[in-house]
Nucleic acid binder design. Structure first.
Length: 577
DNA sequence: ACATTGTCTACAT
DNA sequence: TAGACAATGT
């Protein structure tokens, strides 16, 4: 939901952009927003938890977008939601209630045989479960995509990342649908990014600097702005009746002090103002300013902005609205890290099972994180009764690296990928990767390999780490190659992200070396990671687009004609470029 | 007259 | 889920 009507109100500061503007930069992604969109196409399957390929379409959707970014030389950093913030409990509860109501209704319709009514209702009943998120995490690992699970709100984590220097893991912009990011003070945000990379951008500095635009925020600072957002109504606190974004803006710009606004409101609205509004208001503002996030560098939780002394005093130690911070519920660093790295369910605190999603099953996984970010290296294999997980924390890496040949190259069986494409053109390197099986000490019963391992069944997290080993580090290969020449002709004109070829469900992984091996592949200097699936294929299933990196506009209008009959959204895309 | 609240529909396939 | 538009309230 975000801040009510905020984007509409901020319209003068929103401008269309193409994501390629962030070429060469790191960009944060709110996983939830893409997962939710992706889940539409398979909402019934997800709700019914039916088996089969279709259920996993959301992965295709997500990875298509990831690959779009990578195509434009953008480094995606995917951020997942973690535990719920207490403030948001009411919102969450209501959301859950509606979801369940829709699901029940849908089931009824389905029983009646009214499938279309049912699927409509299922679309409203999709909820993104930890299982779904974790399935995506496994794919992200296998595709070398950086990710982090926020301790609480992904938005807070994203805002934090946007405040960091690149060298410290910072991002230049955040892609999301949630206007909360603005309230969190995120520097650059891209909303409504479509599958071609078109979106709408809002840049915080411009808001505070602009002298000409209305509404003007020249007399605002971040805190006032956040206060305005909270007044207008947010997930943490509904607005006072009669107060919307416009009035909130009016009040804040008139009084330029949140406390004064509160007292004016009490005076003017009297009994309409809930008893504890002031307290809740301050807490909500404090969440936006001081939310807990995961510091990947220090491998521990901290606040976006340190809590100032006066806030600590005024709240008298009651900081639980920021998420449990003290006493017995404190999250120890090892757990914070396990959550952040996607190995533990942030809500149930159970470690995730390792059952790979069927389609990506048996894809050896290797994560190469840039710079100083934590490394998690994980592998899953097709051995159904096995579960491979390899952590590589600083500590364990030192311990474990020794037996691993330093220059070991990647590879290993290609598994599912291999089945999907022409074996003859599967390119892989052929040295061993060391994967050590994690087994009985963790009490995974043989007959039920996917049983969840409860935290309390584990002696400690250190033990887990020491019992698994590190997947060999590979030097330069970013992703292994799988190319099927006749399923693919990649052509990547400068302004587009498109291709032709047979729909094939092929998983296509990158690199510049593609052209060396697969005949018929257009060599394109900037050819980046692309992954074709039948789904993404269909999205541009019209005319082949002639290759040649730098075609310009005159040719485009011709294409346009040939394309428009088949796919109006493509037209849309071109017209916006 | 303006702001807020309510309702419809696209989302993706 | 959220934007666009219409209806309603102050």
């Amino acid at each position: 939901m975000g801040i009510k009507d905020l984007l509409k109100f901020m319209k003068p500061y929103i401008q269309p952009i193409h994501i390629k503007n962030y070429a060469g930069k790191r960009v944060g992604i709110d996983a939830y927003s893409w997962l939710h969109k992706g889940a539409y196409s398979c909402s019934m399957e997800l709700c019914l938890n039916s088996d089969g390929e279709k259920k996993l379409r959301y992965l295709d959707y997500f990875m298509h977008r990831i690959n779009l970014l990578r195509h434009y030389k953008i480094t995606p950093v995917v951020v997942f939601d973690g535990g719920n913030v207490p403030c948001k409990a009411a919102t969450e509860h209501e959301r859950h209630r509606r979801t369940m109501a829709n699901r029940d209704l849908a089931m009824e319709k389905l029983k009646e045989g009214n499938v279309s009514a049912a699927s409509e209702l299922f679309q409203r009943a999709v909820s993104i479960t930890p299982t779904i998120a974790h399935q995506l995490i496994q794919v992200l690992r296998s595709e070398n995509v950086e990710f982090v699970v926020a301790p609480y709100e992904a938005d807070a984590q994203l805002a934090y990342l946007s405040s960091l220097e690149v060298e410290k893991g910072g991002v230049a912009a955040v892609i999301t649908e949630d206007s909360d990011l603005v309230a969190y003070g995120c520097q650059a945000i891209v909303f409504k990014m479509d599958r071609f990379g078109n979106g709408e951008e809002i840049v915080l500095d411009k808001i505070f600097d602009s002298a000409i635009r209305t509404p003007s925020f020249r007399n605002f600072d971040k805190e006032l702005f956040t206060g305005m957002c909270v007044l207008a109504g947010c997930d943490f606190l509904p607005s006072i009746p009669g107060i919307g974004i416009v009035k909130a803006y009016g009040l804040v710009s008139k009084y330029r002090n949140l406390e004064r606004v509160l007292s004016v409101l009490k005076f003017e609205k009297g009994n309409q103002v809930p008893e504890d509004y002031s307290k809740s208001f301050r807490e909500a503002v404090a969440v936006f300013q001081h939310a807990q996030i995961y510091d990947a560098d220090m491998k521990k939780l901290k606040h976006i902005k340190p809590l100032p002394q006066n806030l600590l005093q005024s709240l008298d130690g009651e900081l639980d609205f920021l998420g449990p911070t003290n006493g017995i519920r404190e999250i120890p660093p090892s757990v914070a890290t396990a959550i952040a790295e996607g190995n533990m369910d942030p809500i149930s605190m159970e470690t995730f099972d390792c059952s790979p999603s069927p389609r990506y099953d048996s894809v050896p996984i290797r994560i190469q994180r840039s710079g100083r970010l934590p490394r998690v290296e994980a592998a899953a294999t097709s051995a159904r009764n096995s579960c491979f997980v390899a952590f590589s924390s600083q500590k364990t890496r030192e311990k474990k690296q020794e037996p691993v040949p330093k220059k070991a190259k990647y590879v290993n069986e290609v598994g599912t990928l291999e089945k999907l494409i022409e074996p003859s053109v599967v390119i892989r390197e052929t040295e061993e990767t060391t994967i050590v099986e994690r087994n009985s000490p963790l009490k995974v019963p043989d007959n039920n390999p996917f049983k969840r391992i409860k935290l309390d069944e584990m002696p400690s997290f250190q033990m887990v780490e020491s019992q698994v080993s590190v997947v060999t580090e590979i030097e330069s290969l970013d992703t292994f190659l799988c190319v099927s020449p006749d399923s693919l002709t990649l052509e990547v004109p400068d302004e587009e992200f498109s291709w032709k070829g047979k729909p094939s469900g092929v998983v296509l992984c990158e690199t510049k070396r593609i052209s060396e091996v697969a005949s018929g592949v257009t060599q394109e200097e900037n050819l980046d990671v692309l992954r074709l699936t039948s789904q993404s294929q269909e999205s541009v299933n019209s005319k082949p687009i002639v290759s040649g990196g730098k075609r310009k506009l005159k040719k485009k209008s011709e294409q346009l004609k040939s394309l428009e009959t088949k796919n109006s959204s493509i037209l849309n895309f071109f017209s916006r470029v």
